[in-house]
Computed example of a mutant assay.
Amino acid sequence: MSQPHPAPAAAEWRLAVLSVWHPALGAPLDPVAVVGLDQRPGSNAPAHLVWVPLAFEAADPWRELLAGGVTADLLDHWAAQNSAVAVDFVDVPEGAVDLAHAAGLVLDELLAEVLPALPDRGEG
Rank of each mutant, 00 (worst) to 15 (best):
N44F: 02
N44C: 01
N44K: 11
A45V: 14
A45S: 12
L49D: 01
L49V: 15
L49G: 01
V50S: 09
W51M: 05
P53M: 08
L54R: 15
L54K: 13
A55H: 12
A55W: 00
A55D: 05
F56C: 01
E57F: 10
E57G: 10
A59N: 04
P61R: 07
E64C: 03
L65F: 02
L66C: 10
A67F: 03
A67T: 07
A67S: 15
G69P: 02
G69I: 06
V70M: 09
T71P: 02
T71M: 06
A72L: 14
H77C: 10
H77G: 08
W78E: 14
A79G: 11
A80M: 06
A80Y: 00
A80G: 15
Q81A: 15
Q81Y: 00
Q81K: 13
N82E: 14
A84W: 07
A84C: 03
V85T: 15
V87F: 02
D88P: 00
D88S: 14
F89I: 03
F89V: 05
D91I: 00
V92I: 14
V92Q: 02
A96Q: 02
A96T: 03
V97D: 04
D98A: 08
D98W: 06
L99T: 01
A100K: 08
A100M: 03
A100N: 04
A100I: 00
H101S: 13
H101I: 02
A103S: 14
A103I: 08
G104T: 11
G104D: 11
L105Y: 00
V106M: 01
L107K: 12
L107T: 09
E109Y: 07
L110K: 05
L110F: 10
L111Y: 02
A112G: 10
A112Q: 14
E113W: 09
V114L: 09
L115S: 02
P116I: 04
P116A: 06
P116G: 08
A117E: 12
L118H: 05
P119T: 03
D120N: 10
